[in-house]
Write a protein that binds this DNA or RNA. Structure first.
Lengths: 212, 212
DNA sequence: ACTTTCACAAGTCGCTTGTACCGTTATAAC
DNA sequence: GTTATAACGGTACAAGCGACTTGTGAAAGT
């Protein structure tokens, strides 16, 4: 038997090259030759690791979804001490906004995939994948906040959790379109959270200062 | 001089063929030949009305934006009697959701353009175009509601208006992804409006029943 | 009647695309 | 040392792309 190569690692490298191109020129603007060139390998080699373009796109989508999940989890664990539900929520939501280069690429790639997912059933199934998890995570935090008296109980719903996800998505959209910048989006997010966590007209939960 | 043809009308017909394809297969899946076939004309004729593909895409974007604006205005005017600010807001916002086939195509096309706009400056400038108008319209309604005592004054801000736009955008995204359906999105939108229009823990403004 | 010019249809051009396939090298097993 | 096979690099190919050119018929102006 000849030498063995870590296929998973090679595939991830190629995926990352694809993301760089997709965030700069869109998914359709990234041909196999372009991706190979960006990854610094030959077209033949790329084809050795992905039998077709669709296979590459699907792998890259799964990979970026996995990284996005890791990122969320990292941000939660990075919170100091015993974080309040509100702090957890803010960390997750602000982590989904395109505030730095890394998350900007992530959101751009996600948008590119979304457009395809709208008419590609395979991609759509994959893109929807993480949403229920995220909704559950957020709903859990809302319930926890309600138990602590930091949130009116009637606001601790799955709908509210879903609304939060949708809102961050909408904010991200307009940041990418340069309608406003990341700081403004963050301010609007904080405004929404502040009103969400209002109990009898007063702020509740731990307000958080600064940071992305 | 030979016979004269209404160029504007021809261009609109071609644009509509493009939308049908774009909503079904995405913008990149619509070649000039495909659009011509969908419009039932020859490639040569299409090129007679659009010198380049970019010109066609730009015209179609402007056209769909104009129709979207018309739709909003129609919905406001269709409201019976002297509509409250809340009724106006709900009519506009629900009109932006992909609830029927027409608006579904509109949102799909908008999404396809958005993906391109992320890395195409010309399209981005055009796509941003209607936003400030919409924000102003919404902010005006919020202020009017605050004056009528139906909304706490501190919520009558430009940020709140922008947040509404972003939220509908996010909801639309997930409707297209089949995460939930249009009715659910509408329920979530109504939930948000209900809380927005809460004064001292009680509902204010005119609650609206049913309808899209 | 003649000319001009619009409104097309059809074909061609150079280029890029995804995919298939061939040839070569290197390495591990026997 | 032979063989089998993973790991490539390189090339060829059919299809499709946008852009461009050419040809034709007809109607309006003179």
């Amino acid at each position: 038997m000849p030498k063995k190569v870590d296929h998973e690692a090679r595939r991830q490298e190629i995926s990352e090259a694809l993301w760089r191109l997709a965030s700069a020129r869109g998914l359709e603007g990234a041909s196999l030759r372009d991706v190979a060139a960006e990854a610094g390998i030959s077209l033949g080699r790329l084809q050795h690791y992905f039998r077709s373009k669709d296979e590459m796109l699907l792998f890259a989508l799964r990979h970026i979804n996995r990284l996005a999940g890791d990122r969320i989890r990292e941000r939660i664990e990075a919170l100091p001490g015993e974080p309040t539900p509100r702090e957890v929520l803010r960390a997750c939501l602000s982590g989904m906004l395109p505030l730095d280069e890394r998350s900007r690429v992530g959101v751009l790639v996600g948008a590119a995939y979304f457009t395809r997912a709208a008419y590609d059933e395979t991609l759509r199934a994959e893109a929807k994948n993480g949403i229920p998890q995220l909704r559950t995570l957020f709903a859990d935090q809302l319930r926890r906040a309600a138990e602590r008296g930091e949130l009116p109980p009637e606001r601790a719903t799955e709908d509210e959790a879903m609304l939060l996800i949708g809102m961050v998505d909408g904010l991200s959209t307009y940041v990418l379109l340069d309608v406003y910048d990341g700081r403004t989006a963050l301010r609007m997010l904080d405004g929404h959270l502040a009103r969400l966590f209002e109990v009898n007209g007063a702020a509740a939960g731990a307000p958080v200062a600064g940071g992305g």
